[in-house]
Write a protein that binds this DNA or RNA. Structure first.
Length: 302
DNA sequence: AATCCTTTGAAGATA
DNA sequence: TATCTTCAAAGGATT
């Protein structure tokens, strides 16, 4: 029963053709998964995923149209123009533009600052690193089912907002409600294309660059992301689209609003100060911050 | 222990 | 509608 539910959710999602409409899907659509070895760097879906999508025929499209009537239409970027992926921060820049600033973390050439990233040099025939994002694998659970393996988007509440014992007697109805809310497991946002890419490539970057600090690794990954061809990026956008669809199926009532403002920021004023001048540039960084000189460290340190 | 740092993209909030 | 803000992951650094 549980399995069937999970499988059908997978099946449902995996067989939906991209919704029609301009700017919703890169054209031509790259084949998402093939039985034979994909080239290095191409995400691969789990065998279970492939198995169940082959076992179960595509559902009637009527179901999804109902879903999409409820939810905001998906917004997979149009990849027809390399830098017009979204209407957001990346838009309208020519692909030849150089990076606006040196990284805050000094990077060795092999780790990619202003470098071209060649295909990774794995030995021929070496096993391709499988795409392992857990929510695209069988671990996804069904909320409310006792035997369900929790979907990775669900994390138990930390209970941080729980009242101290001496407060308990004074709890109002609103407080009880807040406590109840706090105890509810948090459903996290589905991962976007870049997050999926990061998850996939992080280990490789750590191995190549012998770095551990996530902020530095993320800088490298951000630059590698820009260095990807649009076809390569399209694979991750497609995976992200499926992530969102799966998330939508598993948590129909969920909205990003549910988690909005839940993470505490140390101080918004400080953040705004550090980003004075306000708007993020096309690279998602803040002009003042980006202009700051990078601290020098000899390459040998890396 | 909690938050920051750093990245991009999606989506909510606000002007 | 355009712009700004928050949050997804990660783990060492900082508070």
């Amino acid at each position: 029963m549980y399995k069937e539910t999970v499988y059908s959710a997978f099946n449902l999602l995996m067989h939906y053709p991209p919704t029609s409409g301009a700017g919703q899907h890169p054209q031509p659509q790259p084949p998402l998964h093939k039985a034979s070895q994909p080239p290095h760097g191409v995400p691969q879906l789990s065998p279970l995923y492939e198995h169940f999508s082959s076992q179960h025929p595509a559902p009637a499209p009527a179901d999804i149209s109902q879903k999409q009537a409820v939810h905001r239409p998906l917004q997979t970027p149009d990849l027809s123009g390399f830098y017009s992926l979204t209407s957001g921060s990346m838009g309208q820049l020519p692909p030849t533009v150089s990076w606006p600033s040196p990284p805050l973390y000094p990077l060795s050439p092999s780790c990619g600052y202003r470098q071209h990233f060649p295909a990774p040099t794995a030995a021929p025939g070496a096993p391709y690193p499988r795409f392992t994002h857990p929510s695209l694998m069988l671990g996804s659970g069904v909320p409310g089912h006792p035997a369900a393996i929790p979907h990775p988007a669900i994390v138990p509440s930390s209970g941080k907002q729980e009242l101290q014992p001496y407060d308990r007697g004074l709890k109002t109805q609103a407080e009880s409600k807040a406590e109840k809310e706090a105890k509810k497991p948090t459903i996290k946002k589905p991962l976007n294309a870049f997050m999926l890419y990061m998850k996939e490539m992080r280990a490789k970057v750590i191995a190549e660059c012998t770095l551990k600090e996530s902020a530095a690794i993320n800088q490298i990954l951000g630059r590698r992301w820009h260095a990807l061809s649009r076809e390569e990026q399209a694979k991750y956008y497609e995976l992200a689209r499926k992530e969102r669809q799966l998330h939508m199926q598993l948590y129909p009532g969920w909205s990003a609003r549910d988690n909005y403002g839940k993470k505490k920021r140390r101080s918004r004023e400080k953040h705004q100060e550090s980003t004075a001048g306000g708007k993020r540039n096309a690279f998602g960084t803040y002009p003042e911050k980006a202009a700051a000189p990078a601290p020098f460290l000899p390459m040998t340190v890396l």
